[in-house]
Amino acid sequence: MEALILSCSTGGGHNTAAQAVFEALTERGHHAVRMDPYTLVSEELANKVGQTYIKLVQKSPKLFGAVYDLGNAYRKLPGRSPVYHINGKMAPYMQKYLAEHLTDVIVCTHLYPAEILTHMRLNGMETPPFVFIATDYTCVPFTEESDCDLYVTPSPLLSSDFTGRGIPAEKLRPLGIPV
């Protein structure tokens, strides 16, 4: 099996989960590639996305909390979020990568790649099956905008959090966070 594991450097948990999935797949004889999708544009963009998030959390935690609360409020509005539309701009880059690299399954340990792939799918671009692994103990804002084939959640106790946001129960797999 050829697997693509997508994460973003917006915190250690996402990348730790991506690394755990990578190791588990390669130990079982599968071929896996791990990447930040923003590197398809440039390393500079990938670093900028990650560092902006980390700096906001570290230097302005109250502002980060306000932005998170704004995301929770925005998710009640009809239509897709600005976050979805910004990530959608990555679709042509991901489409090109997938056209050039055999991929049987994609594992996303961050919401941004799941939104990129959802944008592709909703705009008629082919994608292999893709799985979202939630690395937070909640259904983070805008997860419900994604259209993944499966959602791995940290605990069965969170199922109602995800189904309450419109994610079908049959797509949930409460398997924990890979470490």
Score class of each variant (00 low, 15 high):
residue 5 I to H: 10
residue 10 T to F: 04
residue 12 G to C: 03
residue 13 G to K: 07
residue 15 N to T: 11
residue 17 A to K: 03
residue 17 A to Q: 02
residue 20 A to C: 06
residue 20 A to I: 14
residue 22 F to I: 01
residue 22 F to A: 08
residue 25 L to H: 06
residue 26 T to Y: 05
residue 26 T to S: 08
residue 27 E to N: 15
residue 27 E to A: 15
residue 27 E to F: 08
residue 33 V to L: 12
residue 36 D to R: 05
residue 37 P to W: 01
residue 39 T to E: 12
residue 41 V to S: 01
residue 42 S to Y: 07
residue 42 S to A: 05
residue 42 S to F: 07
residue 44 E to L: 12
residue 45 L to T: 11
residue 48 K to Y: 10
residue 48 K to I: 03
residue 48 K to E: 11
residue 49 V to L: 09
residue 49 V to H: 02
residue 50 G to S: 15
residue 50 G to I: 10
residue 54 I to S: 03
residue 55 K to R: 15
residue 56 L to V: 04
residue 59 K to Y: 05
residue 61 P to L: 09
residue 62 K to M: 07
residue 62 K to L: 14
residue 64 F to I: 11
residue 64 F to N: 09
residue 66 A to V: 05
residue 66 A to P: 02
residue 67 V to I: 15
residue 67 V to L: 14
residue 72 N to D: 10
residue 73 A to F: 13
residue 74 Y to S: 12
residue 75 R to G: 01
residue 78 P to W: 11
residue 79 G to D: 10
residue 80 R to M: 07
residue 80 R to L: 14
residue 82 P to K: 06
residue 85 H to P: 00
residue 87 N to C: 14
residue 87 N to Q: 07
residue 88 G to I: 06
residue 88 G to K: 02
residue 90 M to R: 10
residue 90 M to Y: 02
residue 93 Y to M: 01
residue 93 Y to R: 04
residue 94 M to G: 04
residue 94 M to C: 05
residue 95 Q to E: 14
residue 99 A to R: 05
residue 101 H to G: 11
residue 105 V to Y: 03
residue 105 V to A: 06
residue 105 V to S: 00
residue 108 C to Y: 01
residue 108 C to M: 00
residue 109 T to Q: 07
residue 110 H to I: 00
residue 112 Y to D: 05
residue 112 Y to L: 06
residue 113 P to W: 07
residue 115 E to I: 11
residue 118 T to Q: 05
residue 122 L to T: 10
residue 124 G to A: 07
residue 126 E to H: 10
residue 129 P to F: 06
residue 134 A to P: 02
residue 135 T to K: 04
residue 138 T to L: 10
residue 139 C to Q: 08
residue 140 V to D: 09
residue 141 P to E: 14
residue 141 P to D: 14
residue 142 F to V: 13
residue 142 F to K: 02
residue 144 E to P: 09
residue 150 L to C: 02
residue 150 L to R: 14
residue 152 V to Q: 09
residue 155 S to I: 08
residue 155 S to D: 13
residue 156 P to R: 08
residue 157 L to M: 07
residue 157 L to W: 01
residue 157 L to Q: 15
residue 159 S to M: 13
residue 159 S to H: 08
residue 162 F to N: 01
residue 164 G to L: 09
residue 166 G to M: 02
residue 168 P to W: 03
residue 170 E to G: 00
residue 171 K to Q: 09
residue 171 K to W: 01
residue 171 K to L: 11
residue 173 R to P: 03
residue 173 R to W: 00
residue 177 I to Y: 07
residue 177 I to H: 13
